[in-house]
Every structure is written in structure tokens, then in C-alpha cells.
Amino acid sequence: MSSSYLILTTIIIFLLIFLYISWIFISNEIENKKETGERRDFLYTASYALGAVGLGAAVWPLVDQMNPDASVKALSTTEVDISNIDVGKSITVLWRGKPVFIRRRTQEEIIESQNTKLTELKDPQKDQDRVKKPEWLVMLGVCTHLGCVPLGGKGDYKGWFCPCHGSHYDKSGRIRKGPAPTNLPIPKYEFVDNNTIKIG
């Protein structure tokens, strides 16, 4: 989100610089016009306007080429076969270059996660809001502090523990202790069928 604002701001700054430089060139002409008493310059205005439109249209491909290309966008979804994951086991898959934890939770883990008081949470979020099927926890394995990959089954809450700066996540992947500000993110995913999850 913020990157588009950055690009927009940069473009506006460049536009202003361009306008200032062109003002210097145009101001000469305006003085001349006052001398000769030329009529309204609709022709000039129209030329500038059309020129500016063309310049913008020409700049766009140069900016857009840095956006994800077709081959990257094609890999933006990943289908994962979850039929071989036993209860209480996790796998890690790569999606858009980042690790995604898929854990098949035990009943105890589910109940414990659902019963956690929201007041105890740094980033309050109900467990039910983090999963589609309670048995399956699908989340990005990227610590929300500075991006390290947390270790599973470790930490004070027996969820995940990030060794870089000591963030502790619970069995729902929510931040409990440590510098991380928010819970481990849940990516967009759906169950294609009972054995397959499509992420992205």
C-alpha cells in the first residue's frame, strides 16, 4: 500500500520540477505576448494539455515494468496437498518466496486457543477469526517484528518462538511476549477440496 503512495509522491515531485522549469521558458513568451497583445492562447493551452497527457502515458510503461511481471504473478498462488499431514504435525511450504506454516492442530490446541482471554493478547484476535477449519492453521511464518522465521513448538506458549529477538507466539500464532507488534499474518487461502489448500 505504502509503495504506491511513495511512487505517487515521487511522480508529483518530478512533475512540479518539470512545471517549474517549463515556467521559466514560458514566462519569456508571456512577456512577449503582452507586447504584441496576442489573443487568448487556447491553441497553446490545448497543445500543453495534450502534450502532458502524452508524457504521462509514455511514463506509465516505464513505471509499470517494475511491477510484478506475468511469470511472477502466475506463481502467486500455490496449491498444497495436505492429505499426508498427521494430527499434531506441521509442514512449511514456500509461497511468493516466503514460508507458510500449515499445522494440523490437536483438539487440545484448538480448545486452548479458542479459550484464550482477549485481554491477555497484545494483538487481540479470536482464534475462530484466524482459521477456516479449526483443525488447520495456515499462516505466514514471518515474524512481524523484523522478518525472521520463528521456530515451531518452542517458546513459553508452546507455539512458535522467534530466536532473533525473542518473540513468543501461542498455539494460534498470536504474539504473547516479545517485541513483535502483531500476530503471525494469515494469507488468503481456500480449501479446493478436503485434501488441497490453495494459497494466494
Binding site: N32, S47, G54, A57
Partner: peptide
Amino acid sequence: LYLVILALLVYFSMNRLWSRIESK
């Protein structure tokens, strides 16, 4: 198509500008 239209506009702007020189 855009460039042709722009060329026409600029061409007429150019002539209007340069007419000052001839008259001066």
C-alpha cells in the same frame, strides 16, 4: 493517431508564435 494530432497542434502553435517575428 495521438502523435499526428499533437503534431498538428504544435505546428499551428509554432506558426502563430513565428508570425510575431515576421511582423516585427
